[in-house]
Design a binder for these strands. Structure first.
Lengths: 336, 336
DNA sequence: CTGAAAGCGCTTACAG
DNA sequence: CTGAAAGCGCTTACAG
């Protein structure tokens, strides 16, 4: 059955339909000026034979592979515990599937691997464009990619002065909303578990401070502690915070908030009675936490969708200048 | 700079090195019989120019794209909450990177998408081989893929009678170990939260029953309840179990165990004093649970590594017949 | 509107 | 050991 049939080519279809291979190619590529009857005849043969063009040959001839790469710089620790990437990939694949694009995954496990693979990414003509996650401030890909003429879109704001295309969520606004909410709750001894490993952390810190400024609330420097976005670091950070007796804590990520929550529980304190707690991300587990975590929801899946759409427009030459897309966030009220 | 340089071709390198393009191709592909000096001269030019072969052209000429596809049938719910896939992808990319293979991701969001994309997967010559996750018993890909001549490896045991290649963990043995551990703890009122959505669930149930048989322990049918591998389902299942007063529960997945754990805590019971609880998977969050969850660790990352290696051998024609690889699991002692 | 032909950048028998 | 040449299966000016 299928196993024996030789692979059909454009010429075969042309012969069967009584036209040239050029014409078959044109109907496949929706070239407009074709006599309707001819088009129909060809399409009939294509359907009957189940012909599918050889994508590799198409790529070589058209200089377009239809493959985009998702680059996740080495951050294994993060990726393995963080559902963020799953949501992102979900949004991305949804959109590539819809656009007829192929998604190639470049996940690096060491700095070395990163450097090695970068070259083959840029030079081998396999990939039409790149979506790159901006996970750290010092992202070597940022510098490398802008020196080449491969189209790319960052997910998250990269730390760089030149204008480039990226999609991001409103981190500053989100943190502002979180702080404002805590203030509206009547809390005044606000604390923050921040993280300055990437620009998202920076922006969230900025939004938090902005809200305090706007509401003329002072913050004790002792109530500003750092984590690394992980649950463990949130746990430790919260313990550093206890001596300062905060009545409200904003954790710059849900994972850290979940860690803080555990420390709070173990200290015998009640959320939100003793300490109000707000996270950032709205991970699936946050809704399931005990008590459910109030947090800032960011539309991670949409980030993936928008990234692909933006890149796709760049590939179709519809866009010249770098473009930035900022997606809104929202406060999700739960325990606090 | 880089932006202006025209892309080099084999001919360019040949001209620069004073040899034909065929020779350059041969040194690039490590063809053995080449005069050392010629090889060196060519390699020098390649390094100096930073030449990288066009992969698309290589693919067309060699009929080998170097791209393998990871197919995740539509199971969005699962994938989004389950770190399993992240570990798997991590193992897979580690190995594809090392082998010089490219990984293309095929994640489906509906049955319809699955059917549509399947054809282009099989017929467009883009993909050399497939790694397919066997997430459900009714996996339409199983039937489709075996009708084509594309090499493939399943991750997990598919429900099918014909012999095919797959990598799997010792589910039966793992569940046996779990039950045996509970028995050794002196428990006799054993219960199981099972799931029959896929063969992993079946196998775990089987191993559990086997241990009970071997130790001549009866099980009250009321103590056999079902979930769907999710936390919520484990929570609900545990509540069904309370009336049967079990002193030990084996949950066929950590997510279900975590749900059960919550139900147990809310019922005011203590783990392991009142109820011993064992899960299966060893997710990152299981070690962080309160109390830490005793579970069966499965080497998910290794599953990815072995899958790629097996597929790669198939692609290199080193292997003819279908092969099955079963990776060991181990009991991880924590609270229970 | 359609076809003949060149070309995309490689690989690989076939000679020598 | 190395080169000339054909070929992989498409796309796309160029004519007509």
């Amino acid at each position: 059955m299928n196993k024996q049939t030789k692979k059909l080519t454009l010429d075969d279809i042309g012969a069967l339909a009584g036209v040239s291979r050029a014409t078959v190619s044109r109907v496949i590529n929706d070239y407009p000026h074709i006599t309707p009857e001819v088009r129909e005849r060809v399409q009939k043969v294509i359907v009957e034979t189940g012909y599918k063009p050889n994508k590799i040959a198409q790529s070589l001839a058209s200089n377009r592979s239809g493959i985009i790469g998702l680059v996740i710089p080495h951050a294994v620790q993060t990726i393995l515990t963080n559902p963020y990437f799953l949501h992102l990939i979900n949004g991305i694949t949804q959109t590539t599937n819809a656009c007829g694009l192929n998604l190639s995954l470049f996940l690096f496990h060491s700095m070395n691997e990163e450097v090695q693979m970068a070259r083959s990414l840029f030079y081998t003509n396999l990939i039409d464009g790149l979506i790159i996650t901006a996970d750290r401030k010092e992202n070597p890909f940022v510098k490398q990619v802008i020196q080449h003429d491969i189209p790319f879109v960052f997910v998250g704001r990269p730390q760089i002065k030149v204008p480039i295309s990226y999609v991001n969520v409103a981190n500053v606004m989100g943190a502002y909303l979180a702080a404002e909410h805590l203030i509206n709750l009547g809390r005044r001894r606000l604390a923050i578990i921040m993280c300055d490993h990437n620009t998202a952390g920076d922006d969230r810190y900025k939004g938090f401070r902005q809200a305090l400024d706007d509401y003329h609330i002072e913050i004790d420097p002792q109530r500003i502690v750092r984590g690394d976005f992980s649950l463990e670091s949130g746990y430790v950070a919260m313990q550093q915070l206890f001596p300062t007796v905060p009545d409200a804590v904003f954790a710059a990520s849900d994972m850290m908030a979940l860690g803080a929550q555990r420390a709070i529980r173990q200290a015998g304190l009640i959320i939100p009675d003793d300490i109000a707690l707000v996270g950032f991300d709205d991970l699936p587990q946050s809704a399931l936490a005990e008590p459910p975590l109030t947090t800032i929801r960011q539309p991670i899946e949409d980030l993936g969708i928008e990234a692909v759409n933006l890149l796709n427009e760049m590939l179709c030459q519809k866009i010249g200048l770098p473009r930035q897309i900022i997606l809104p966030v929202e406060l999700v009220l739960r325990a606090s």
